[in-house]
Design a binder for these strands. Structure first.
Length: 304
DNA sequence: CGAATTTGACCTGCGC
DNA sequence: GCGCAGGTCAAATTCG
């Protein structure tokens, strides 16, 4: 997918959103969170709007809910990933009352080699040599790390770091070009979990937070977190194995549709396998038009 | 006191 | 080759 296509997608998404008049209650920011009165966490939002029967609402299938859009980063030319969602001219347009959760996935892509922006192995990687403190960063240049599936979504929120049930440790922050808002980098604190996320605020709509997840959790939600995160989701969502179902809320977005790739034209199919757990759903769904691309059939099928 | 955050330096890839 | 921008590291600092 080229930058333009990527951009177009978001424009369309916004347009679509407007047309549907979606909005009122998004998955975002509501002032009635259990723990934090200032906002509703993503987890809370999912919980509140979610059981599988009502996900369709949560995902914009009903007029009163937020909308989820997906897109797949085919060949991320210059990492047009979510990072750029808020960073350049391709800004998303959200209606004041709506939450657009757009997901961009770039799965796997071992082939993104040349492009893969570094992704250096977590420090202390096996090359054994942490030479001097900072000198060792140039490790294994030949080795291209596979890129994790990545998906982003936008959430209207006053807080940058949305609670999603997992514990994150911030490991960096950078100013983003063309945006007055910095981008924060978080890493899952669970050992051996390599999931990362980036959080930035849209410069066009400061109320919109763009969160990009990279990788998949290989562990259940921490039970201790904010009391009840683990209890918020059905067992299938807590399963470590991606094949058994999303292991964390955002993985729901993974179910989106590989064929957004096809739309994009380029490099589409190469990502399909990364969505394999969900392809079956895709194939099962009747024709819901765009919705089938956006919403997993398992949600759709519950429709009355 | 341990964990989390901040922040400046460093590294890498890309475009010119 | 150079400069820019994104991403990461890790020491210092702050927080619980």
């Amino acid at each position: 997918m080229s930058d333009h296509e990527f951009r177009d997608f978001y424009y369309q998404a916004a347009f679509h959103n407007d047309q549907q008049g979606v909005g009122e209650t998004g998955m975002y920011r509501v002032s009635s969170s259990l723990q934090d009165p200032s906002y509703m966490s993503f987890t809370d939002c999912l919980h509140s709007s979610m059981d599988y029967c009502s996900l369709e609402k949560a995902f914009g299938l009903s007029p009163s809910s937020s909308e989820v859009f997906s897109s797949v980063e085919g060949n991320q030319t210059k990492q047009a990933g979510a990072g750029d969602l808020g960073g350049n001219t391709s800004e998303v347009m959200t209606t004041p009352n709506s939450s657009i959760s757009s997901s961009s996935s770039e799965a796997g892509c071992e082939e993104d080699s040349d492009k893969s922006k570094k992704d250096r192995q977590p420090k202390g990687s096996e090359d054994g040599g942490e030479s001097s403190k900072k000198g060792n960063k140039a490790k294994k240049k030949g080795e291209k790390k596979q890129r994790e599936p990545r998906f982003a979504f936008m959430t209207k929120s006053e807080v940058d770091h949305l609670e999603d049930g997992y514990r994150w440790r911030k490991y960096g922050q950078k100013a983003v070009k063309n945006s007055p808002y910095p981008r924060s980098y978080y890493r899952c604190t669970t050992q051996k979990c390599t999931v990362k996320k980036r959080v930035e605020r849209s410069f066009q709509d400061p109320s919109v937070v763009i969160t990009t997840y990279e990788g998949q959790h290989n562990h259940p939600l921490p039970t201790t977190l904010r009391g009840s995160a683990a209890g918020l989701f059905p067992p299938s969502m807590l399963t470590p194995s991606p094949l058994a179902g999303p292991s964390f809320p955002h993985e729901l977005f993974l179910q989106m549709p590989h064929h957004m790739n096809n739309q994009a034209g380029s490099a589409g199919s190469m990502f399909a396998e990364n969505f394999s757990p969900f392809q079956q759903y895709h194939h099962q769904v009747p024709d819901y038009g765009l919705l089938q691309d956006i919403v997993p059939s398992r949600f759709l099928k519950h429709e009355p």
